[in-house]
Computed example of a mutant assay.
Amino acid sequence: MATKRALEGQLAVVAGFENPSVALEQYPTPPDLAAHVVHVADLQGDVEGRTVVDLGTGTGMLALGAALRGPARVVGLELDPSALRTARENQRRVGTTTPIHWVVGDAARAPLCLCPTEPTTVVMNPPFGAQDGASGADRPFLATAASMADVSYSVHNAGSEAFVEAFAADNGGEVTHAFRATFELDRQFDFHEADRAEIETEVFRIEWTG
């Protein structure tokens, strides 16, 4: 198995959003965070030989990270077609030979074709709900994960532990692992005051049995 640092290096070529949307909270997942999440998932046996679905894949960072660790196939679901065009370009940059299916669709209402019968892992960095009126934006992503996955890994704003644990318990799931991670964000919107900011996040592994 390649090291986490090696995976991070492979993901360093992944391009972000050309015209990020504030409403969709299109912030690129940093390579180090993606490598950390995928590496942990791989160590738990949740990647190799499985179907991996990246909900709200954006330009493909988590999907491509998983594709480099030997899954049977990867599905990247994204509402924004322009982001998926970049994801396809990123696939060529990364050079993975794993079958990747890029699908335009809403992660909150995933197409029926994304309910595989084989062992499935969801990886996702859902919206944090930071914009006005967007509180709870990560809830439908978790609901979709519960409907299709045996296990999921998701990145949330710091302080989400009680919510995620309660949601999992109410939907046939259990949080088995949790760890903190720093989300480094470069300035990309006019309302950002600093050139770079650090956002404290929490990553949760959930086993779904319901």
Results as ranks from 00 to 15, higher is better:
residue 90 N to Q: 10
residue 152 S to A: 10
residue 53 V to H: 06
residue 45 G to Y: 00
residue 41 A to R: 01
residue 130 A to Q: 14
residue 84 L to A: 13
residue 168 A to H: 10
residue 126 P to I: 04
residue 55 L to H: 05
residue 19 N to F: 06
residue 134 A to L: 10
residue 121 T to C: 02
residue 51 T to F: 01
residue 205 R to H: 07
residue 76 G to Y: 07
residue 115 C to S: 14
residue 111 P to W: 11
residue 193 E to L: 09
residue 201 T to F: 10
residue 142 L to D: 02
residue 60 G to R: 06
residue 77 L to K: 10
residue 138 D to P: 01
residue 191 F to E: 12
residue 149 A to Y: 09
residue 15 A to L: 09
residue 61 M to I: 12
residue 199 I to Q: 11
residue 189 F to H: 13
residue 148 M to Y: 09
residue 102 W to S: 13
residue 25 E to Y: 08
residue 123 V to R: 07
residue 129 G to V: 01
residue 199 I to N: 05
residue 171 N to K: 00
residue 189 F to G: 04
residue 169 A to C: 11
residue 106 D to I: 02
residue 135 S to Y: 11
residue 91 Q to W: 11
residue 95 G to D: 04
residue 150 D to G: 15
residue 8 E to N: 02
residue 37 V to E: 02
residue 208 W to H: 11
residue 51 T to W: 00
residue 84 L to N: 13
residue 156 H to T: 08
residue 98 T to P: 09
residue 40 V to H: 14
residue 106 D to T: 03
residue 47 V to D: 00
residue 78 E to Y: 12
residue 21 S to W: 05
residue 78 E to F: 12
residue 48 E to R: 15
residue 91 Q to I: 05
residue 86 T to D: 06
residue 102 W to N: 12
residue 68 L to Q: 11
residue 6 A to Y: 12
residue 184 E to N: 13
residue 63 A to E: 08
residue 13 V to G: 04
residue 125 N to A: 09
residue 62 L to A: 10
residue 137 A to G: 04
residue 39 H to V: 02
residue 134 A to V: 00
residue 164 V to K: 05
residue 10 Q to D: 12
residue 162 A to N: 13
residue 178 A to E: 14
residue 191 F to I: 00
residue 95 G to I: 03
residue 122 V to T: 00
residue 180 R to V: 12
residue 178 A to C: 14
residue 167 F to V: 02
residue 11 L to R: 09
residue 41 A to G: 01
residue 84 L to H: 10
residue 6 A to K: 11
residue 90 N to V: 07
residue 81 P to M: 09
residue 154 S to A: 15
residue 192 H to A: 08
residue 194 A to Q: 15
residue 99 P to L: 03
residue 83 A to K: 12
residue 13 V to D: 00
residue 176 T to K: 14
residue 2 A to W: 12
residue 42 D to T: 13
residue 153 Y to A: 00
residue 18 E to I: 07
residue 72 A to T: 09
residue 83 A to Q: 10
residue 208 W to V: 05
residue 124 M to K: 01
residue 178 A to W: 06
residue 160 S to Y: 12
residue 159 G to P: 03
residue 30 P to H: 02
residue 28 P to K: 04
residue 14 V to M: 04
residue 136 G to S: 06
residue 133 G to S: 04
residue 75 V to E: 09
residue 146 A to E: 07
residue 119 P to T: 11
